[in-house]
């Protein structure tokens, strides 16, 4: 009974529980869904005079928003589980670590899907973001970003002893990726060392993937590579995150 690495019923129960917690906190949901839309709107009129710039940055941001928000939400939520004793209690029950993590990924992935639907819809239909490829591919990349953000948040929450520390991991983990992901300047124009660093950071592939969709009609080889790297990264970080959930603690 407890030997299976993942129990679908317990995973579903965990995901339902996380969604219920969010449901009881409507303000958080509103912030999660509305803030990215408002930022896109803001960006559109910041670049009012140069729509091509908005096309480039807007597509990248569609990939970056879900990563950042899910990173923040997950790192705080799992930190709370660790400090409130609910994690210790759950791990003393027949709940597998994989159930716990998959439950979180599923719940926040669902939320991210709604968020990405809204932002992608707004950008493409409302703000005239010019996408050559299929907007559904944008959505796919956004979802993978959200799962990646969830994975990273779960991982860093193991190294934070308080909410103050957890929030500080955002500039530490996310900002360097933001600077190096190609949003501000193409990655091949960076110092070679930085370009090499950006090659191993997952957000670079999120932005590359978004740009592939934005510039090409079909599914390109580069796009497939970007998607695979993101999936691999998310799974790797989730596995490492699972290792930080300890049944026995000092």
């Amino acid at each position: 009974m407890t030997t299976a690495p993942l129990s679908p019923a317990r995973t579903a129960a965990t995901a339902t529980r996380v969604l219920r917690q969010l449901h009881n906190d409507p303000r958080t949901i509103a912030l999660l869904l509305l803030v990215p839309c408002l930022l896109l709107l803001l960006l559109r009129y910041v670049f009012d005079g140069s729509p091509e710039t908005f096309d480039g940055i807007g597509a990248s941001l569609l990939g970056i928003f879900p990563l950042i928000t899910m990173f923040l939400v997950t790192s705080i939520a799992t930190l709370r589980e660790r400090t409130s004793g609910t994690l210790e209690r759950l791990l003393a029950l027949p709940l597998g670590k994989a159930d716990f993590i998959a439950g979180y990924a599923l719940a926040f992935g669902t939320l991210a899907a709604v968020q990405s639907l809204l932002t992608t819809g707004l950008a493409v239909l409302g703000l005239g973001l010019d996408v050559t490829g299929s907007p559904w591919l944008l959505l796919l990349v956004a979802l993978l970003d959200a799962v990646l953000g969830t994975a990273l948040g779960l991982f860093v929450s193991a190294f934070a002893a308080s909410e103050f520390q957890a929030v500080q991991f955002m500039p530490a983990v996310i900002f360097p990726q933001l600077l190096l992901c190609g949003l501000f300047t193409p990655r091949d124009q960076m110092h070679p060392v930085l370009e090499a660093v950006s090659d191993v950071l997952p957000m670079s592939y999120a932005v590359d993937g978004m740009n592939e969709v934005q510039q090409h009609a079909g599914i390109t080889g580069d796009f497939v590579r970007d998607v695979l790297v993101m999936v691999g990264c998310a799974l790797l970080v989730l596995a490492v995150g699972a290792a930080t959930l300890r049944r026995r603690t000092a």
Binding site: Q21, G85, T86
Partner: peptide
């Protein structure tokens, strides 16, 4: 098992 500090979800 009941821990000393109540281990429940406050937002449920």
């Amino acid at each position: 098992y009941v821990t000393q500090a109540p281990a429940v979800f406050d937002d449920l």
